[in-house]
Amino acid sequence: MNNYDHYEKYGFGRWSVLHKETQEYLGWCGLKYDEALDEVDLGFRFYQKHWRKGFATEAAKKCIEIGFAQLRLKKIVGRVMPENRASIKVLEKVGMSFVERRIVNDQEWFVYAISS
């Protein structure tokens, strides 16, 4: 975390996600600007015991809302491995649509996007 300068550089980044009632750490979710691709990526990772409970979808929706309303972004992308059906479902639930297939370092990725 000491080297995480995304907030200083861009004014936003990834957030820890805590359970509202118990304050248990569930994982993280947030927006990240990728200079090389000139795009803002929605990312999320949750501990497996918290999968399929709606936490990723709820957090991702809030990130998109903040991205458009407060940060005034025009477009947000989500990159996912094709075999990660659960994450694809989250991206679709938050309104993202498939845009393209990319190969990065010999790894296939699907790119989804949503525009304001």
Rank of each mutant, 00 (worst) to 15 (best):
M1C: 15
N2T: 15
D5W: 13
H6Q: 14
Y7Q: 12
Y10L: 05
Y10G: 04
G11T: 06
G11N: 06
F12L: 06
F12Y: 08
F12G: 03
G13W: 02
G13I: 05
W15D: 07
W15Y: 15
W15I: 12
S16M: 14
S16G: 15
V17S: 03
L18H: 14
H19S: 10
H19F: 09
K20G: 08
K20F: 09
E21S: 13
E21Y: 13
Q23S: 14
L26M: 11
W28R: 14
W28Q: 10
W28H: 13
C29A: 15
C29L: 14
C29D: 05
G30V: 03
L31Q: 00
K32Y: 04
Y33G: 04
Y33I: 03
Y33C: 00
E35H: 09
E35I: 06
E35S: 07
A36K: 11
A36P: 06
L37F: 11
L37D: 11
D38G: 07
E39T: 02
E39N: 05
E39H: 03
E39D: 06
V40D: 01
D41L: 06
L42D: 00
L42Y: 05
G43R: 00
F46P: 02
Y47V: 07
Y47I: 07
K49C: 10
W51N: 14
R52F: 12
K53S: 11
A56I: 00
A56Q: 00
T57M: 05
T57P: 00
E58K: 07
A59K: 02
A60R: 03
A60G: 11
K61Y: 13
I64L: 14
E65Y: 12
E65C: 08
I66L: 06
I66F: 10
G67F: 02
Q70H: 08
Q70P: 06
L73K: 07
L73G: 03
K74M: 13
K75P: 02
G78K: 01
R79Y: 03
R79T: 04
R79G: 03
M81V: 09
P82L: 05
E83G: 03
N84H: 12
N84D: 05
R85Q: 08
A86V: 11
S87P: 02
I88L: 07
I88T: 09
I88S: 04
I88H: 05
K89V: 11
K89P: 00
V90F: 03
V90H: 03
E92R: 12
E92A: 11
K93A: 08
V94H: 00
V94G: 01
F98M: 08
V99T: 01
E100Q: 14
R101D: 11
R101T: 14
R101P: 02
R101A: 10
R101S: 14
V104T: 12
N105V: 02
N105Y: 10
D106V: 10
Q107D: 12
V111L: 09
Y112E: 01
Y112N: 04
A113W: 01
A113S: 12
S116V: 10
